[in-house]
């Protein structure tokens, strides 16, 4: 960890040094660029699953695209360690159907709220579009394999979290409240999109494998460290963390 941090720090130290010394020519010449594209597979998941969730009936990762670019600087004489800064645009999403018991639920319409505990089925659709800035350390495992690890910051400019409840019942307010059943074709929709957090951070960890000349295949695990919801939002009583595996390829030059 210390080594990684040092590498990241060194990247900037060298950069600042060289720029201020007017020797930036050499610095930029030694930079490596990569453009990449991929797909995100994963979901926003509570860790561990709360007891309220009794069964995951279905899960679909949806097609989540990602495109981005990375600037990399290899350090030292052996060029084993490096640091990089990236910018990528990505979508993350999922669609799930779960069976829940006594699950916090809030149905909002026309400025009013029907709040309570839901027992039954819930369909959830999560979709976000984000700009992500990863700051990572690189390590050359071999001539073909490069590992990376580091934090990322993201800003969501589009957020959706909605769905509906069906085949169950709501206890209005709390478990002692009036019981309202929704069965058959009856469903009640909810939308928590406005409650999603705009800024998030997390860690990413991954590997690149050179498959052909300048073409690399990338696999990165992105692990969000914030609950996807604003902390003031209490209806979903547990934290959901975005955890995605990004698979894709890149072109290095």
């Amino acid at each position: 960890m210390k080594k990684i941090l040092l590498a990241v720090l060194a990247f900037f130290a060298i950069g600042v040094n060289e720029i201020s010394a007017g020797g930036n020519q050499g610095f930029f010449r030694s930079l490596e660029y990569e453009v990449n594209a991929g797909t995100n597979i994963g979901g926003a998941s509570p860790i561990p699953l709360p007891a309220e969730i009794r069964k995951i009936n279905s899960y679909s990762p949806e097609l989540n695209l990602q495109i981005g670019a990375t600037v990399r600087k290899w350090l030292g004489t052996d060029q084993k360690w490096g640091a990089g800064l990236g910018l990528r645009f990505e979508t993350k999403g999922m669609k799930t159907k779960a069976t829940v018991k006594n699950y916090g639920m809030e149905i909002i319409d026309n400025g009013k709220t029907l709040k309570g505990r839901w027992t039954g089925k819930v369909q959830t659709k999560y979709h976000t579009q984000q700009l992500v800035v990863p700051l990572t350390a690189f390590y050359k495992l071999s001539s073909r394999v490069v590992l990376n690890v580091g934090p990322y910051l993201s800003y969501a400019f589009s957020n959706d979290f909605n769905g509906y409840v069906f085949d169950g019942y709501l206890r209005e307010g709390d478990p002692t409240g009036d019981k309202i059943s929704f069965t058959g074709d009856s469903k009640a929709s909810y939308d928590f999109g406005n409650e999603l957090r705009k800024f998030q951070w997390g860690m990413q960890l991954g590997a690149s494998v050179k498959v052909y000349r300048q073409l690399v295949v990338n696999a990165n695990l992105e692990w969000g460290c914030n609950d996807i919801f604003n902390s003031s939002f209490k209806t979903v009583s547990f934290n959901l963390y975005p955890i995605y595996l990004n698979l894709g390829f890149g072109y290095v030059f």
Partner: peptide
């Protein structure tokens, strides 16, 4: 993901009807 996502033991009933 699956290891972390194990369905936990069913909570006791909260209703009192």
């Amino acid at each position: 993901a699956m290891t972390m996502s194990c369905i936990r033991q069913e909570p006791l009933n909260a209703e009192c009807d």
